[in-house]
């Protein structure tokens, strides 16, 4: 059976506050966490430092692979250890750069359309992602999203300790964060929409009244089919036949540049 709320709804009642929670990697953007980590590590410090960061990261890959298969929280924890020792300032500037140079160009155009259409229908967007906050913050600003939940590194004397601050945004914690967020704003989760691509987001999606599997992996797709969740596919700009790709990307980049120029240092 479905998870839909059976609470009474009437057209005469005042409109309820509603939110749409979006996962990021694989859902709104055609990227993953490992890509962001490699980009960041390949651009910190001197050349020698970069090589040692990347070698260290390469040595972690088998662990990361095993972690990915078993537990998303473990994956995040291991992955963010690679940032140990990098300064906060550097991460913030790399986050801006990564967002501008890479993420913006890899956003699914139809995902953006959906955010806007939801917003127009009074459904406020919220990002809930395992990506680091130094990448998510500039992106949220670009998308005009006021609220987001992302993973945060713990810093000690201005440098990353390699540990993640609680709650780690993965699995059940995502669901719990959404529940807290909704409770604080008097939003009924049964009226909220959730969009995610991975079976690790099952708990998060199941918490919401309107779960939607976006570009689902094999296990999420199977779960979505059995639970009768809608399944949608976003395509990259390159493969999206109906979009004027290049112009759209240029437009997005210009928007981003305008938004970052207008809010220097705000991240």
């Amino acid at each position: 059976m479905s998870v839909y709320s059976q609470s009474k709804t009437s057209g005469a009642q005042p409109p309820k506050r509603r939110a749409a929670f979006y996962d990021l990697d694989g859902t709104l953007v055609d990227l993953n966490l490992v890509h962001a980590a490699i980009f960041t590590l390949a651009n910190v410090g001197e050349w020698s430092g970069r090589v040692s960061y990347l070698l260290g990261f390469a040595a972690r890959l088998p662990h990361l692979y095993v972690a990915e298969r078993r537990d998303r929280r473990l994956l995040n924890t291991l992955l963010f250890e690679a940032f140990k020792g990098v300064s906060r300032d550097r991460l913030l500037s790399l986050g801006e750069e990564y967002c501008e140079r890479i993420v913006i160009g890899r956003l699914f155009p139809r995902g953006l359309d959906l955010i806007e259409a939801n917003r127009a229908a009074g459904i406020e967007p919220v990002l809930v992602t395992g990506s680091p906050d130094f990448i998510v913050a500039p992106l949220a600003r670009h998308l005009g999203v006021a609220d987001f939940a992302a993973n945060r590194l713990v810093f000690s004397r201005g440098r990353a300790s390699g540990r993640l601050a609680e709650p780690v945004m993965a699995g059940d914690e995502k669901a719990a964060w959404c529940a807290d967020y909704a409770a604080a704003r008097d939003i009924d989760l049964a009226d909220c929409w959730g969009y995610a691509d991975s079976h690790y987001d099952m708990a998060f999606l199941a918490k919401l009244g309107h779960p939607v599997a976006v570009n689902p992996d094999r296990r999420l797709r199977a779960a979505a089919l059995s639970r009768q969740w809608p399944v949608i596919r976003f395509e990259t700009a390159a493969s999206s036949a109906q979009l004027d790709d290049f112009d759209k990307q240029q437009e997005l980049k210009q928007d981003f540049e305008r938004s970052t120029r207008g809010s220097d240092g705000a991240a």
């Binding site: 709804t9 139809r110 259409a117 939801n118 229908a121 809608p230 399944v231």
Partner: peptide
């Protein structure tokens, strides 16, 4: 018709699935 039709007709996710999926 009175309470739900318009909400469903204008639902962004359903419109998205109609336009770009096979819904």
């Amino acid at each position: 018709e009175k309470n739900f039709e318009r909400e469903f007709a204008r639902n962004p996710t359903y419109i998205h699935m109609y336009r770009y999926g096979n819904a």
